[in-house]
Amino acid sequence: MIQIIIANSSDTPIYQQLFDQISAQIIKGDLIGDHGLPPIRTVAKELRVSIITVKKAWEELEREGLIYTVVGRGCFIVPLSEEELLAKKRRLASAKIEKDISYYKNMGLTFQEFITLSKELYGSDDA
């Protein structure tokens, strides 16, 4: 079952929130291959957002190779191997980190400081 929580007052556009949450669930393996997504119009109605917003999120997911469309039947999760999931995880994560890194560089945060901070913030699990 897909879980989606929309924050209306967030700075993140709603289509981005949809993309982030669904892509994370696919990459984590919570949503498995060939699982069908609910119809766009139903998602829009349920979440009380515009149809076009949902369409845009679905288009982004399709562009990332995470979902595919079967005309007349709807959208489905692309079945991905472990390696493919790992590659997609790295790609999406590095895209996000890249954006933040330019901000850290601008404030003069060194790589070492960044690593130290990251370790502290990430928690002990993967240390």
């Binding site: 829009a44 957002v49 149809i51």
Partner: peptide, 22 residues
């Protein structure tokens, strides 16, 4: 703001734009 798909904006009798909300 939340769920309109399209917006048509009229100002002083003229359409300024008619397009998707975003």
């Amino acid at each position: 703001e939340k769920y309109a798909d399209f917006i048509t904006y009229i100002h002083e009798g003229k359409i300024i734009t008619s397009t998707t909300k975003d």
